[in-house]
C-alpha cells in the first residue's frame, strides 16, 4: 500500500520535473548557442550551428577582450561613482528621517517618494541638455550622476525601513557615552546596515551598469564609453563574423554573472526589491 502511493507520487514528480526541465532547456538554449558559436568563425557557425566544431577559435575572445577591456574599466568607474552617490545620499537621509523630527518632514518625504513615479526617460531630453550645459558631456560624472541620483529614492525607502528596525537603546547608549550623531551614523548605523547597503549596492549597481540609453546619448567615441554601449558596436572581420561579437557578449556578461554566484542572496533580494518597492 505504502509502496504503491510512493510509486504514484514519484511518477507525478517525474512528469513535473520533466516539464520544468523542458522549460529550463529552452531558457538556456540561446545562451548555449551563443557560447558554442563564440569560438567559431562565421563559416563554422553556418555549417554547424548546433554543436562545437573544430578548430576552436579562442582568438575571438582575445580580440573581443582587446576591444572591451577599456569599456569594462569605464563601466566599473561609472558604477562606483554612481553607487557612492546613491549610498551616501540615501543613507544620510534615511538616518535623518529615523532619528529626528523636524519641520517639513512630511513634505520632504513625499517629494522624495514622488520621484519614484517619474520614469527616467521622461527627463531624458532636459537632462541631456542640462548635463551638456554643465560640461558633463562625455565624462565619467556625466555618465554616473543621473543614474546614481535616479536610484536614491528607492535606496532611501529601503534604508529607512531597515534603520527603523535598529533598536533605539543602541542610540541612547551611544549618546550617553558622548557620541554625536555623525559618529553614531558612521560608527554604529552603517556597520550594522551591511545587509541593506549590499541590497542597494546590487540593485543600484546593476541598474547603473546596464543603463544603455543614457550612456548612449551622453558619451561619444571611446573616451569614457561603457561596455554596455561598446558591445553594440562590436564587429568582426569577414572570417570571424558573428563569432567575435558573441565572444564579446559573453565577456560583457561575465562580471555580473560571476558576482552573482559569489553573492546570490543579496543579488536576489536586490533584484526583487527593485520590482516590489519600485
Amino acid at each position: 500500500m505504502l509502496n504503491n502511493v510512493k510509486h504514484k507520487i514519484s511518477f507525478g514528480q517525474l512528469i513535473l520535473v520533466g516539464c520544468v526541465l523542458i522549460l529550463f532547456i529552452f531558457t538556456f538554449l540561446p545562451f548555449y548557442l551563443m557560447v558554442v558559436s563564440s569560438i567559431k568563425y562565421q563559416m563554422q557557425i553556418i555549417d554547424q550551428p548546433w554543436w562545437f566544431s573544430l578548430p576552436f577559435h579562442f582568438s575571438n575572445y582575445v580580440k573581443a577582450f582587446d576591444a572591451l577591456w577599456r569599456p569594462i574599466i569605464n563601466s566599473f568607474i561609472v558604477t562606483i561613482i554612481g553607487l557612492v552617490i546613491t549610498e551616501t545620499a540615501a543613507s544620510m537621509a534615511a538616518y535623518s528621517f529615523t532619528r529626528y523630527d523636524f519641520p517639513f518632514k512630511n513634505i520632504i518625504f513625499f517629494s522624495i517618494l514622488m520621484l519614484l513615479m517619474i520614469p527616467g526617460f521622461v527627463i531624458l531630453i532636459p537632462q541631456f541638455i542640462q548635463m551638456t550645459n554643465m560640461g558633463f558631456f562625455n565624462t565619467y560624472l556625466g555618465l554616473a550622476i543621473p543614474p546614481g541620483v535616479h536610484m536614491c529614492p528607492l535606496a532611501f525607502i529601503l534604508m529607512r525601513s531597515f534603520f527603523i528596525g535598529i533598536p533605539g537603546s543602541l542610540f541612547e547608549n551611544a549618546q550617553i557615552e558622548g557620541a554625536n550623531n555623525w559618529m553614531i551614523f558612521t560608527k554604529i548605523v552603517v556597520p550594522l546596515s551591511k545587509p541593506v547597503l549590499s541590497t542597494v549596492a546590487i540593485l543600484a549597481g546593476f541598474t547603473i551598469w546596464n543603463n544603455y540609453v543614457w550612456s548612449l546619448v551622453i558619451s561619444q567615441g571611446d573616451k569614457v564609453q561603457p561596455v554596455i554601449v561598446a558591445i553594440a558596436k562590436l564587429k568582426g572581420n569577414i572570417n570571424e563574423g558573428d563569432g567575435l561579437k558573441l565572444a564579446g557578449y559573453v565577456i560583457a556578461s561575465l562580471p555580473l554573472v560571476i558576482l552573482f554566484f559569489f553573492m546570490t542572496k543579496p543579488f536576489i533580494s536586490g533584484i526583487t526589491a527593485g520590482a516590489v518597492k519600485g
Binding site: 529550463f24 531558457t27 538556456f28 551598469w209 560583457a252 556578461s253 555580473l256 554573472v257 552573482f260 546570490t264
Partner: peptide, 13 residues
Amino acid sequence: LGFVVPMVVPMMV
C-alpha cells in the same frame, strides 16, 4: 537558482 541566472545577464546582451 537556474532560472535566475539569465536575469543577471545584461539586457543589452
